[in-house]
Design a protein around this nucleic acid. Structure first.
Length: 694
RNA sequence: UCGGGGAUCGUCUAACGGUAGGACUGCAGACUCUGGAUCUGCCUGUCGGGGUUCGAAUCCCUGUCCCCGAACCA
């Protein structure tokens, strides 16, 4: 159990608040909800639900200049879509009058005052982490004067910025939030709900605890960055003598290969990197919905992620796995061919059509079934045929027999190619005795592939999505770069002329489907039209074959093409880092070794590391446009490391950089010898920095 | 230079001071009319150094690293 539920149960045991549990979800209506909010929603609503409590939806609308009604509907739709219901819907602006009264109360108690310093002066007077604050000259105003000024502030007698109301706490506090924080500021702005009623607006730090208290929220759950605000939260509650809500902070959600900050998301949209907030690559709930993610899947994901106070970045693979896990149970199966390859059955009657029965779910009969037509010409996936099949190939090749899913056994006899040698058509024969998919003689076939009858096929456009970023943590930007530099250029692939089984012609788009052997797909709720279907790939199926093949081709390339780099595109940094570290252990497999990316590096500079006994610092050019720094522990054998300068050395280039006391070591240099004599492996010749070494 | 929070397999996350467990990933295998699903097995971890204790992830001391905080934003 997580720490928040532990607290809640303890409170319940102690009968705190008479065993009542009340939470709230407090979005600011100034943006779309994303998966990070989904975590907060699941926590806020989930805790309430589990302990028989209530959860309110409350808009934190205390800053009229950035907020808009436009977002209110979107937020509510997202929450409902996730499957939660709020106990009551409120706006912080509902409480403006009450807050105003409490502000006057604080003035009367002498714990709040009107300050007339400028914004810059207040900042200056407040000091910083290392410098104590200085009290404002207006801090000593009388209660009467404060009250008069504050009332005139409300009445609109002053322009923006002329005065503010501040809490009188402690200018020397180590906690900057306690250095006489602002309670009210003047803003002559139109508010989306209160219109022109107010020209002073409360700050979050004041509005939040008061709103919580007025709703008698027992557990006010929020993210870690509000931790330092908690003392202030409690101070306002105490001074205003209102219901003692308790604020508890938890870590916000982060996911690999994506960004979740409002600012960056906005940048993706405004910069045209994606096609709007509902682009299926976006981590927004609208985007994920359009992509076909299920609300239950998202809730399961949040549950699996857990709840704690540790900053963390969850592997996107967990999201994908959870989604497959959910969709596997709920998605009807259909057949569709993404990249069609025409196949003709020579021994099939020309105008004949066979109808085969196919269940919508192989493990759950309640899904029902449909009939699919089969005829002389059909399409299979380009990928399911290989003229020159690799090892362990179960699918079609000339002379081999496969099962056409739910139909029959089919053998390929001929391959037709165009003038460029591309396979454009296959011919073959079917076994009429294998109708339904099994042969009467009981012979086994290795593979089963999907297909669509050409005559009956429905054309569709299919959009394949991949991770939006190539970097595990796109927020972690290198010097001189920005997060958009890590956008995955292949995050969207549009396929046209895809062939789907006829049952899909009038599919209503109500759920995410599985295209057998490919993945989960849903109808695009924006661009799809009857007769011009558009499907989005939610997530691919787990592809064990792709892994096997990737391994074997890696092997082959290493053997056959020593001139070619071992890897053409950068490996996922994480995977590479893990495996090559493993590879340096005594017993490794050949596969592991292939993952080590050896490169020729030209030593630009070499020096002894001051303060270290064994280290040598090398600056090496790997042809990357910048030099790498590599620390090597063989100083004993290179008292004068300058002999290495301008020599080529062999560098393990795909090692995860290691933070050392003296700096970051971005790779390893190969060396050989025994305890008494170690030499860095160098070589001369016609190499360029960065050339692969095999 | 200040204050607050945090640190457990590659990643998340559990463990009254008492067998470091689960999930994801990875790997190996079984099964299969989806190379899907399912099933089995394996790899991998308590940030470092001291101490208290029969026994420490847990308590104490100390160090290191990471995050947050100086909006008239939320």
């Amino acid at each position: 159990m997580d720490f928040i539920r532990t607290i809640v149960e303890e409170d319940l045991r102690n009968n705190k608040h008479n065993g009542r549990i009340a939470t709230r979800f407090p979005p600011e209506p100034n943006g779309y909800l994303h998966i990070g909010h989904a975590k907060a929603i699941c926590v806020d609503f989930g805790v309430a639900l589990e302990y028989g409590g209530t959860c309110n939806l409350r808009y934190d609308d205390t800053n009229p200049v950035v907020e808009d009604v436009e977002f209110v509907d979107a937020i509510e739709e997202d929450i409902k879509w996730l499957g939660f219901e709020w106990n009551a819907k409120y706006y912080a602006s509902d409480y403006f009058e009450k807050m105003y009264e409490l502000a006057e109360l604080m003035i009367k108690k002498g714990v709040a005052y009107v300050d007339s310093l400028s914004e810059a002066e207040i900042r200056e007077y407040r000091g910083n982490f290392y410098k104590k604050g200085v009290e404002s000259p207006y801090r000593g105003r009388s209660i009467e004067e404060n009250l008069d000024l504050f009332r005139r502030m409300r009445a609109g007698e002053f322009p923006d910025g002329a005065h503010v109301l501040r809490a009188k706490i402690d200018l020397n506090s180590q906690n900057m939030n306690m250095r006489d924080p602002l309670i009210y500021r003047i803003k002559h702005a139109h508010h989306h709900r209160t219109g022109e009623d107010w020209c002073i607006y409360p700050m979050y730090d004041f509005a939040h605890p008061i709103s919580d208290a007025l709703e008698e929220i027992t557990h006010s759950l929020c993210t870690l960055e509000f931790e330092a605000h908690r003392p202030l939260y409690e101070w306002f509650i105490e001074q205003c003598e209102v219901f003692p809500s308790r604020q508890i902070e938890f870590a916000r959600l982060n996911i690999t290969y994506t960004v979740l900050s409002k600012r960056r998301l906005l940048r993706l949209v405004n910069g045209g990197y994606v096609n709007g907030w509902d682009d299926p690559r976006m981590p927004t709930l609208v985007g994920m919905r359009r992509r076909g993610y299920s609300p239950t899947g998202i809730r399961k994901f949040v549950e699996r992620v857990g709840l704690a106070k540790t900053d963390s970045i969850v592997d996107v693979a967990l999201l994908e796995h959870t989604m497959r896990d959910d969709l596997n149970d709920t998605a009807p199966r259909v057949m569709g061919v993404l990249r069609p390859l025409k196949v003709v059955i020579d021994n099939f009657p020309d105008d004949h059509v066979e109808w085969f029965d196919a269940p919508y779910h192989p493990d759950d009969p309640s899904f029902g079934s449909r009939k699919i037509p089969f005829s002389k010409v059909f399409y299979i996936e380009e990928d399911d045929f290989r003229e020159d099949p690799p090892k362990k190939w179960f699918r079609l090749t000339k002379g081999s027999e496969v099962r056409l899913r739910y139909a029959c056994l089919f053998k390929c006899t001929d391959v037709i190619k165009d003038e460029n040698g591309n396979v454009v058509e296959l011919h073959g024969t079917w076994d009429p005795d294998s109708k339904g998919g099994t042969a009467p003689d009981g012979r086994k076939v290795l593979g089963t592939i999907h297909w669509v009858s050409a005559e009956h096929a429905v054309d569709a456009e299919i959009r394949l999505y991949d991770r939006l970023f190539t970097k595990e943590n796109p927020n972690d930007v290198e010097e001189g770069k920005e997060f958009t530099d890590y956008i995955n250029p292949d995050s969207l692939q549009i396929l046209k002329g895809c062939k789907l089984e006829p049952a899909l012609a009038d599919f209503d788009g109500s759920k995410t489907l599985q295209f057998e052997r490919l993945g989960y797909f849903c109808l695009d709720n924006k661009d799809s039209k009857p007769g011009a279907l558009v499907f989005n790939r939610t997530v691919s199926l787990r592809d064990t074959w792709a892994k096997i093949e990737a391994r074997t081709t890696a092997k082959k390339e290493a053997k056959a093409a020593p001139q070619k780099p071992v890897q053409e595109k950068p490996e996922l940094p994480n995977a590479a880092a893990r495996d090559d570290l493993k590879a340096l252990e005594p017993e490794i497999s050949f596969d592991d070794f292939v993952k080590v990316d050896l490169r020729a590096g030209l030593v630009k500079d070499a020096s002894l590391v001051e303060g270290a006994k064994k280290l040598l610092k090398l600056t090496v050019d790997l042809g990357e446009g910048r030099y790498r720094t590599i620390f090597a522990g063989i100083r004993a054998f290179y008292p004068d490391p300058s002999v290495l300068v301008d020599r080529f050395v062999i560098v393990v280039a795909n090692l995860k950089p290691r933070q050392m006391k003296f700096g970051l070591s971005e790779g390893m240099v190969l060396a050989g010898g025994d305890d008494n004599n170690v030499l860095i492996a160098t070589f001369d010749g016609q190499l360029k920095p960065g050339d692969p070494v095999t």
